[in-house]
Write a protein that binds this DNA or RNA. Structure first.
Length: 452
RNA sequence: GACGGCGUAGUUCAGUCGGUUAGAAUGCCAGAUUGUGAUUCUGGAGGUCGUGGGUUCGAUCCCCAUCGCUGUCCCCA
């Protein structure tokens, strides 16, 4: 049997894990500093929680978990004949989580009596999608979400902008753009061009502007049944936005007859004001009215972060949703959140070469193992090293010293503590620095001071 | 769902216009150096050439099928 892992999944070795943890730690630290509390939810959710939340396509991308035991016991011939969609409820009642937002919404509804609102939670866990893997797209990947529910204060949006800046700057990724838009502006545009309520179809096409260009977007809109006259009225979308200062002014003029549109502009301005009040240094925020993002549940602000100079899609995204918990019987709870894509951030940082060195080294000193006597002596020393807070290990077998040194070298352990009969006798232990090659006889107290 | 590329040593890859004994680098093991790594030198192990079938005197190579990996489009964040 040749071992293998399911397609679209990956192993992360020690070297990768230390880099990934560097990213996780940076995000977690910022989340905590902004007052978010951690939540974890089960890997599996009941399918009733998951289905219908991500559209028809989304339902297909859910990993379903076969019922335990005789999963086919409730199957009837009739179901079998009607195809897999009819069989599904009989053989699977659980599925793997598809994102962190829906499980969060479920949690909020289930614990509504207990939660102190506004509730600020962060969640760092893997999600699964039965998608076809491609570059930068996996079947198992991590999301790092932070959401605030129970308030529609635009301070939350502003804080998200701040957190994005902190996270990327802490990671050493300094050239990035935070694109921001508002769903109400998109609704306003739909109203003004005479297709109110059709902004979803509009968004799907407009969202691709940066990717496929104006002409293709117009073609796609045409295919989706938008009239030539309507598309003509849409022209300001393509021409606006070159000058950030002028953009909102022009937009107000264009959307002057749409109450919703003007509300969206006002919200956006307010968020920008808050960001200014925070005194954020060198803000990288850019209003982009073509930013739509796929999710249909966004109702207010929409965010997306791009790392500049790297050919990788967005590295973080989020927005405000007014009624996420409505599907679980709790309407009127507004929320806003952000999600960082660790896997893509990893790729960006790797490409930019901004990971700090020496992330792999975890053991600081290794004690050699010559024989039974030295081993016993070494164990006592080892305990003292560890008690002093020094990451240390002893080579577990009395094999050839050459092998032991090779082990330390490969594991990038910076120091080897050589303890043989001579050292035990004199009490001067030989500490070798593998980077410089230097070796000195030292008392244990001196070693503890040196390595601490 | 549509189309393309690739499956050869642990790993990364050569290779053969179809020819008898399939190579390199690296890694691994051993020795030079039985108390000193990363360098150097020497030797060694390691392959059903993805799987099944076909064509052929002969297939790792050509054909078909199948499985797996990977990429683009669609889709999706």
């Amino acid at each position: 049997m040749k071992p293998s892992i399911p397609r679209g999944t990956r192993d992360f070795g020690p070297a990768q894990m230390s880099k990934r943890n560097f990213i996780f730690d940076a995000i977690r630290k910022v989340y905590q500093r902004y007052g978010f509390q951690q939540l974890e939810t089960p890997t599996m959710e009941n399918l009733s929680v998951l289905t219908g939340k991500y559209g028809d396509e989304g339902d297909q991308l859910l990993f379903k978990v076969l019922n335990s035991g005789d999963f086919a016991k409730d199957l009837t011939a009739e179901m079998t004949n009607q195809g897999y969609k009819k069989m599904l409820p009989a053989i699977a009642e659980k599925g793997l989580r598809y994102d962190l937002t829906v499980p969060f919404a479920r949690y909020v509804v289930m614990n509504r009596g207990e939660l102190q609102m506004p509730f600020k939670r962060y969640q760092i866990q893997p999600v699964w999608r039965a998608d076809r893997p491609q570059k930068g797209r996996y079947r198992e990947f991590y999301q790092c979400d932070a959401d605030v529910v129970g308030t529609d204060s635009l301070i939350c949006e502003a804080e998200i902008v701040l957190m994005i800046h902190e996270v990327f700057r802490n990671l050493g990724v300094n050239d990035f753009t935070v694109k921001i838009n508002n769903r109400k502006i998109l609704s306003g545009i739909a109203e003004v061009i005479g297709v109110p309520g059709q902004e979803t179809a509009l968004c799907v096409a407009i969202d691709k502007l940066g990717k496929i260009g104006q002409q293709k977007v117009e073609e796609e809109l045409s295919e989706r049944g938008f009239l030539a006259d309507t598309i003509l009225k849409l022209q300001p979308v393509f021409s606006l936005g070159k000058d950030q200062n002028q953009l909102l002014t022009d937009l107000k003029t264009w959307l002057k007859d749409s109450e919703t549109g003007l509300a969206g502009i006002a919200e956006l301005e307010k968020v920008m004001q808050y960001v200014a009040h925070f005194g954020l240094q060198d803000p990288r925020v850019q209003v982009d009215i073509t930013l739509a993002r796929g999710l249909s549940y966004y109702t207010g602000a929409i965010f997306e972060v791009k790392a500049n100079g790297v050919q990788i899609g967005s590295v973080a995204g989020g927005g405000r949703y007014d009624n996420l918990t409505g599907a679980f019987g709790l309407p009127g709870v507004s929320g806003v959140g952000i999600s960082f894509g660790v896997d893509r951030i990893y790729d960006v940082m790797d490409e930019l070469g901004v990971f700090p060195d020496n992330q792999t080294a975890s053991t600081k000193v290794m004690i050699t193992n010559f024989d039974a006597t030295a081993e016993v002596f070494g164990l006592g020393v080892l305990k003292k090293l560890r008690d002093a807070g020094i990451n240390a290990e002893i080579y577990p077998e009395a094999v050839k010293i050459k092998k032991q040194f090779e082990y330390a070298d490969r594991k990038q352990i910076p120091f080897v503590l050589i303890i043989g009969s001579e050292e035990i006798e004199t009490g001067n232990l030989a500490l070798k620095n593998l980077q410089t090659g230097q070796q000195r006889p030292l008392r244990l107290e001196e070693i503890l001071a040196e390595l601490a």
